[in-house]
Computed example of a mutant assay.
Amino acid sequence: MTTTGLPAPPTDDLFELRFSSTARGARLARRLASHRVHTWGHRYGSEVNDTVSLIVGELAANAVTHGLVPGRDAQVRLVRLTRERLRVEVSDTRGERMPAVRAVLPAGDEVAGRGLVLVAALCQEWGVSDRKGAPGKTVWAVVVTATP
């Protein structure tokens, strides 16, 4: 317990969650990632929390839309690399469908196609790798959390 009577925030540097490959699962992943970032000291509504929430939301939505394999879950991982950097990872089980940023943004009335453009704009770097120990891929992004 802290001097305020509240439990001390977790000090571990890793958060992992498997979520159902549904829109509801993607929303839950986003909310729980936001909660973990909050417990790591980046309060709800802060730039870091909002950035991580948006990135998790976009990558989780892509995973359940484009990486869906019926009956298979997706996974989100947050890793504090250093005090200044946090890595967001979202994995799905569909390795043959690799994401790519569109060369041209969709027209204003199109509802899809902006997710990875947002991710690329909000993070320090991002990429795709083979999923370790399971079929599929992991889309990751590194977010700056503090001025080095």
Results as ranks from 00 to 15, higher is better:
54 L>P: 00
93 T>I: 02
27 R>M: 10
32 L>V: 01
83 R>M: 13
118 L>D: 05
26 A>H: 02
106 P>K: 08
124 Q>V: 05
87 R>W: 05
145 T>P: 00
144 V>R: 15
106 P>V: 08
45 G>L: 07
101 V>K: 06
87 R>E: 13
110 E>K: 06
22 T>D: 07
120 A>P: 00
5 G>S: 12
77 R>N: 07
102 R>H: 04
38 H>E: 15
58 E>T: 02
98 M>G: 05
66 H>L: 11
108 G>T: 12
29 A>Q: 09
90 V>A: 04
49 N>Q: 09
46 S>P: 00
44 Y>K: 15
44 Y>V: 12
125 E>N: 04
144 V>E: 13
14 L>W: 06
8 A>N: 07
16 E>W: 01
61 A>K: 12
55 I>H: 07
117 V>F: 00
19 F>Y: 14
35 H>Q: 14
116 L>N: 08
102 R>M: 08
50 D>T: 11
31 R>G: 14
105 L>Q: 10
19 F>N: 05
114 R>M: 03
121 A>Q: 12
29 A>L: 08
138 T>D: 11
101 V>Y: 01
137 K>L: 11
139 V>H: 05
99 P>D: 06
38 H>K: 10
107 A>I: 09
50 D>H: 03
17 L>V: 01
13 D>T: 12
54 L>F: 02
91 S>M: 03
55 I>P: 01
86 L>C: 03
103 A>I: 00
89 E>K: 05
6 L>G: 06
125 E>I: 03
90 V>H: 01
123 C>H: 01
26 A>T: 07
136 G>M: 03
120 A>L: 04
143 V>H: 11
63 A>L: 06
5 G>F: 10
5 G>P: 13
120 A>W: 03
84 E>K: 02
121 A>N: 08
138 T>A: 06
118 L>R: 08
24 R>Q: 12
117 V>D: 11
91 S>K: 00
22 T>P: 09
22 T>S: 13
83 R>V: 14
76 V>R: 12
15 F>S: 13
110 E>V: 13
112 A>K: 15
76 V>C: 13
36 R>D: 14
110 E>A: 13
45 G>W: 06
45 G>K: 10
88 V>A: 00
136 G>Q: 08
104 V>P: 00
18 R>K: 12
12 D>N: 07
145 T>V: 08
64 V>S: 08
18 R>D: 14
18 R>M: 10
64 V>C: 09
59 L>W: 05
6 L>F: 14
79 V>Q: 13
74 A>L: 03
81 L>K: 01
5 G>T: 14
51 T>Y: 02
30 R>G: 01
91 S>A: 15
1 M>V: 15
14 L>C: 03
68 L>G: 00
3 T>W: 15
66 H>C: 13
83 R>P: 00
14 L>E: 12
137 K>V: 02
35 H>F: 14
43 R>I: 06
106 P>Q: 08
32 L>S: 10
133 G>H: 07
109 D>H: 14
36 R>A: 15
69 V>L: 12
33 A>N: 11
85 R>L: 09
54 L>C: 11
59 L>R: 04
38 H>S: 13
64 V>R: 10
39 T>G: 06
16 E>P: 03
107 A>P: 01
4 T>W: 05
2 T>F: 07
50 D>V: 13
142 V>P: 00
64 V>A: 01
9 P>M: 03
113 G>K: 06
73 D>I: 10
